[in-house]
Design a protein around this nucleic acid. Structure first.
Length: 801
RNA sequence: GCCGGAAUGGCGAAAUGGCAGACGCACGGGACUUAAAAUCCCGGGAGGUAACACUCGUGCCGGUUCAAGUCCGGCUUCCGGCACCA
């Protein structure tokens, strides 16, 4: 074994004690800004999945430096969050202590990998000099009316007696204790992300994201076009529904309203069966999320008897039902049911024997309704009979608008972002609640609003934030009127600090502004952002929203924060399952590093398979990468000749081809095949048995982005000048990629018969002539007549008989 | 149900429509060794043959093409995400 532990230590010491990887605010050079998602420093330390993206973009960053770019490649810590706080509570420690310890451990682990991070720009979201600006952004959102407090339904864990974020609810149960989660009304801070819904869709056209990321964001935002339509009731009042199918207006046979809808209370007074309806509403409220959203369960509901809705187009009286399959939070909370053309309405209508009127006929319609397709002709619909679905839709919308009974409208699935947590370990929300003035922002000059140091982080039974107990912190004078007021005691969610951190890397120590204009204009946007698919509809969407807001108020100059996004596949355990402590299949990078070293681990993580797909860890396969590096270490023994600036004839072509392949593969994240081609080259060098100093140099330059320590070591031992990582990335000569003879497959009727050697620039007739001279070919075509001859230069010949 | 992705040796995987299985693991044989480990060399899709030849082979069925893992149409299975969004 080559002495990787000493070698790697030596080079890491040299790199990190010099300014080699520091980004320079040098605007004369072109910049490059690759970004990885900064980690949440959990208590369990790094597992082998964490470094996969770090290594991948390190390869890109190192290559860019060699290509003459000024590179900004950073890491930091997304350190606020629940697991840290829970651990602190359990072990009676301060979350800050826990967090510091975790960061220390993560940092030591990451440093062992030899990633070319600019450690001078390390950031920590829990640092008051950082969260000062997170709070500042919140204040701007508040001032623009995009942060507001409102009564909202939140997730309440019946076990922990605490409010949970949506992302902490797994299939209707608590992520931590697995108890049932119910909905509870609570006063919450919200961010108006819905105001940006359309732009979050539209501006995806301007960025280079994978198709699947764009489509998931679009689906999540969930834009639907349709119409809002007014219905009167027999009691004389008015309500609105949202529908995507105004063309089916004649097929409406009943109305369904969500149990929580305020109109239910209003209509109760008129209902003949008020008691039963009330019971139904109560039962629905008591249901857990699982019960409520289980699609397999039977739909339930109850008619409000004694009151009817009137179809605006034909004055038909139709019954009004209450059912919990209708959501309050989407559209108007009231639905016009068209059982003939909607699966849910159909199911409900069948169960309660409600009428079903077909209004769209189509050859594509199944035997049994409902037909939900849109290729059809309207029937049973007086005014619009015979029209296509699309035309009928336009006709009905026009009619609604002309008669003041409705309008064209768009709805989004996206909801406003519940932005408060009843927790200690987060950014305090910089708002004061004044009995006279309402919610008042604190002055920007008072930022950061520091988290007070407290003893107990345990939440109250009521689920109030632990900060509520700190009277000395809570009680303040109103910044507006000076009367006694109280601070907001909720804190921000973990997603706050990560929504803008990439801006701070550009200018991490600025205490006057979030980022200087100069740094902003030079470094932004992020050129290449790699992260996990799991953040597509969370962090990635949230940070795009914040960035657009900052753009609107003139803080940043680009509409989008990230020019290009890619995502890595997960590294699974040896049993093909997601790595987790409970499954007992976690591989600790420290063990791999101890046994094989950083270069082998880096190489293996990139060689394991397609970067964008999941891959299972295989302890055995690491050996292949280790063997490869052993052989690299032995390369100087094959050196022949003195200084030269040219290739030997034996290796000229393969080295040029390898330069070409490695260069191209890195750009499209095909690290596995880039490494495979380096392995092939090494095999060839050993087969040839010798190489010159120029060739060795090139080999090391290609390798040094993947396995930097060993490359520098061999570089130094061979007496090459300077450091490998500051040399220019090798170019290749197209002509030199050419072999002097190439093997051509000769097929007869598409079946390969033999192979012949030809010069790569052999002309067609010449190639056919030479092929036919071959004895095997001659025999194969004997007795047949050639009807077609195909020649693909450098590849094959096909004779069709 | 909807959206996205995948299916190729014993395993991880490669293949701008052009020789399927590069590269690596594991395995088998050989060399070195007292022996083992390490290292080096050789081998390998399946059937078939004494050996060739030949036949079959990239989830299934069809199509386009001189030529299909790759393109087109229709399925199946698996993985990931979303899900009563009217």
């Amino acid at each position: 074994m080559y002495g990787f532990s000493e070698i790697e230590k030596k080079w890491q010491d040299r790199w990190y004690s010099s300014d080699l990887f520091l980004a320079k605010d040098d605007t004369s050079k072109p910049k490059y800004y690759p970004l990885i998602e900064f980690p949440y420093p959990s208590g369990s330390g790094l597992h082998v999945g964490h470094p996969r993206p770090y290594i991948a973009l390190d390869i890109v960053a190192r290559k860019r430096r060699m290509q003459g770019f000024n590179v900004l490649y950073c890491i930091g810590w997304d350190a606020f969050g629940l697991p840290t706080e829970n651990y602190a509570i359990k072990n009676k420690l301060h979350p800050r202590i826990v967090s510091r310890g975790n960061i220390k451990r993560f940092k030591a682990q990451v440093k062992r990998l030899g990633i070319s991070f600019d450690w001078s720009r390390e950031i920590d979201t829990t640092d008051e000099n950082y969260y000062k600006w997170t709070q500042w952004i919140f204040l701007q959102l508040f001032k623009k009316g995009l942060a507001y407090k409102s009564e909202a339904m939140v997730n309440w864990c019946t076990g922990c007696k605490v409010v949970l974020a949506n992302e902490e609810v797994i299939n209707g149960t608590c992520e931590r204790c697995a108890s049932e989660v119910v909905k509870k009304q609570k006063n919450q801070w919200m961010l108006r992300i819905t105001k940006y819904a359309q732009r979050l869709i539209d501006d995806l056209d301007d960025v280079d994201y994978p198709y699947k990321v764009k489509t998931s964001q679009i689906n999540w935002i969930g834009r639907s076009e349709g119409a809002n339509m007014q219905f009167k009731t027999t009691a004389g009042d008015l309500f609105e529904v949202f529908t995507t199918r105004p063309d089916t207006i004649y097929g409406v046979t009943y109305i369904v309203i969500a149990p929580e809808h305020q109109f239910v209370q209003k209509w109760l007074g008129l209902a003949e069966n008020a008691t039963e309806v009330k019971d139904y509403v109560l039962t629905a409220a008591r249901k857990t999320d699982i019960e409520r959203t289980d699609l397999n369960k039977d739909k339930t509901g109850i008619q409000i008897k004694g009151i009817y809705a009137v179809n605006p187009i034909n004055q038909t009286h139709i019954p009004i039902w209450v059912s919990d399959y209708v959501l309050t939070s989407y559209g108007t909370g009231v639905v016009m049911a068209v059982p003939a053309h909607d699966t849910r309405d159909f199911e409900f209508a069948k169960k309660y024997s409600l009428p079903i009127i077909d209004v769209v006929s189509s050859d594509l319609a199944p035997q049994e309704p409902p037909f939900t397709g849109k290729d059809g002709t309207i029937i049973n619909s007086e005014m619009i009979n015979g029209l296509s679905v699309a035309d009928a839709r336009e006709a009905v919308i026009k009619w609604l608008e002309e008669n003041g009974l409705g309008r064209r409208s768009v709805n989004f699935k996206l909801r406003d972002w519940v932005f408060s947590r009843q927790r200690y370990w987060g950014e305090p929300i910089p708002i004061v609640n004044c009995p006279r003035c309402g919610y008042v922002p604190i002055s920007e000059s008072e930022l950061p609003l520091r988290l007070p140091d407290i003893e107990s982080f345990q939440q109250a039974e009521t689920g109030e934030s632990p900060l509520a107990n700190v009277k000395s912190w809570v009680d303040v004078k109103c910044p507006e009127c000076g009367s006694d007021a109280q601070r907001e005691t909720d804190t921000m969610p973990q997603w706050a600090g990560s929504s803008w951190y990439f801006l701070r890397y550009c200018d991490p120590f600025n205490d006057r502004e979030l980022i200087s204009q100069q740094a902003l204009k030079y470094w932004m946007p992020v050129d290449w952002y790699n992260g996990g698919m799991e953040h597509t509809t969370l962090h990635l969407l949230y940070s795009r929203f914040w960035h657009k807001f900052l753009y609107d108020i003139g803080v940043v100059h680009t509409k989008e924060p990230y020019a290009k996004r890619t995502s890595h596949g997960m590294i699974l355990g040896e049993n093909n399952e997601k790595m987790s402590k409970s499954r007992g299949n976690v591989v600790n990078p420290d063990d791999v590093l101890d046994q094989y070293g950083a270069d082998t681990m880096r190489l293996y993580e990139m060689f394991i398979g397609d970067f964008e797909s999941a891959a299972s860890w295989d302890t055995n396969s690491i050996k292949g990468c280790s063997r490869f590096l052993e052989r690299v270490f032995g390369l100087p023994q094959l050196l022949v000749g003195e200084q030269t600036t040219d290739f030997s004839s034996k290796l000229r072509s393969i080295i040029n081809k390898t330069i070409k392949k490695v260069s191209a593969d890195i750009e499209v994240m095909k690290f596995n095949t880039a490494i495979a081609s380096l392995m092939s080259l090494l095999n060839e060098i050993y087969a040839v048995g010798e190489l010159n100093r120029f060739e060795l140099k090139i080999f090391l330059l290609l390798l040094c982005v993947f396995a930097p320590h060993i490359s520098e070591e061999v570089w130094e031992r061979c007496g090459f000048d300077g450091l490998a990582c500051v040399q220019s990335w090798p170019g290749f000569c197209g002509a030199d990629c050419q072999d002097s003879v190439v093997e051509i497959a000769v097929q007869v009727n598409g079946r390969i018969k033999t192979k012949i050697l030809l010069s790569p620039d052999t002309k067609e007739e010449e190639a056919f002539r030479l092929a036919k001279e071959n004895a095997i070919v001659r025999q194969a075509i004997a007795g047949g007549e050639i009807s077609k001859e195909v020649y693909v230069p450098k590849s094959l010949i096909n004779f069709v008989l």
